[in-house]
Computed example of a mutant assay.
Amino acid sequence: MTVTAEAVKALVQTESTVRLRPRYEGSNINTWIGFKHVNYLVEEAVLEHFRAAGLGSRFLFEQHGLGLDLADLDTRILHAFHQDDEARAVVVPRTKDDDGHLSFAVTLFVERDGKELKAVTSKVKVALRVDSYLAAAEVPAELSRFATTGIGGFAEFGEHHGAEVTEAATTALSAGRGTTGDDPVLARLLAGRNAFGWKWRIPYPYCHFNERFAMSGYLRQVEEVVDLFLADRGVSIKTLLDDRKWIPVVPHSRVQFLGEALMEEDLYTVFTVEEVFKDLTYTARTDFYVVRDGRLVQTATGRITHGYAVFGDRTDWSLVGFDDRVVRAFSGHPAA
C-alpha cells in the first residue's frame, strides 16, 4: 500500500460519517457520559476519517514513521450523552492549502424522541509527527507539508515559559507520584493567582508512540485537576453529590499543544479560575509545564467551562445556580 494523491485528496476534501458509541468507563454519574469520553468519540471519528481515506494511524506510523497526534481539540457539548447512545459522527475537512496541519470540524448527532439532535461540535487540528525514536522512514511527498519534527505552535506561550527554576525532589516513587504541597516551581506558577497547582510524574499508560504524552492524557489530566481543585476548595464532587445531588457538567473544553511532554517527566498542571458567569458556570484556564535544563517549558494550554446540574431521578437533570458557598470556593475565599 502506498500514499497516493487521491488518498490525500480524500483526507483533506471529502467528509466522512461513522457511527460510534461512548465507552462504559465514561459513565460516572447515573448513565451520563463525561466530557472526556465525549472527546474520545471525537478522536475516534477523526481516526476513522483517516482510515476511510486509506491513511490509518497504524499505516502512517509503521510505513512512514508519522505519528498521528490530535494537537488542538476544542469541543462544545450541546446535549448530554448516555450509556448505549449511538452517535452519528460527521467529519468535515477544514484544511487550508497553506496550513502545515490538518484541520477538521466534527459534529456528533444523537437521537432523542425520534428526532436527531446536534449534540457536540468540535474543531480539531492534527499533527503528523515525524518519529525520532526509531530509524528514520521516508515521508511521502504527498504528506510532507503536514509532517513536523515537533508538535506545538497552536497558541501563545504563557508568561512563565522559559523562566529559570529549581526543582524539588517531590515526585520520587518512594514519596508518591504527585504533590500539591510545598514546591518551589508550584509556588512560582501560583503566585498571586486564584489557582491550584499539581506536580505529577507522567506514567507510561498516558503516552503513545513510545514516549509522547497524548491528547487523551491531557484530557485525563484536566479531569483529575478539576477533581483535586474542588476537593482543595472544600467542595469536592462527592461532598456536593451527597449534600445536594449536584453533579459537574462541562459544556466546553479545549486543549492546545504548545510543545511535547515526555514519559517520566514531572508535569506541572496549573488550574486558574478566570470568571464566574451569572452564578451558573465558571471558566478556568489549564496550563501545563515541564522543566528542562532548569527552565520551564510550557507544553500545552486550554480552558474548561464548568457548571452543576441537579438530578431528581435517574434519567433527567437541570442546571442549577451556584450558592454562596460554591461561589466563595471558586473565588478563593473559604466559606464563612
Rank of each mutant, 00 (worst) to 15 (best):
L102F: 10
A105H: 13
T107K: 12
V110H: 02
V110Q: 09
V110A: 04
V110C: 07
R112K: 11
R112I: 09
R112H: 02
K115S: 11
E116C: 05
K118C: 03
K118P: 04
V120Y: 04
K123E: 14
V124M: 01
V124A: 07
V126N: 02
V126A: 02
L128F: 13
R129A: 08
D131Q: 08
D131S: 13
A136C: 14
L143N: 01
S144P: 01
R145E: 07
F146N: 04
A147W: 02
A147Q: 03
T148I: 09
G150D: 13
G152L: 04
F154S: 00
E156S: 14
F157E: 06
H161E: 12
G162M: 00
G162A: 07
G162R: 04
G162F: 06
E164Y: 08
T166L: 09
T166Q: 10
T166I: 03
T166N: 00
E167H: 04
E167M: 15
E167S: 13
A168Q: 02
A172G: 15
A172M: 11
L173E: 04
S174N: 07
A175L: 13
A175P: 03
A175D: 15
A175T: 11
G176R: 09
G181L: 02
D183S: 06
A187P: 11
L189C: 05
A191M: 06
A191G: 05
G192L: 02
G192E: 02
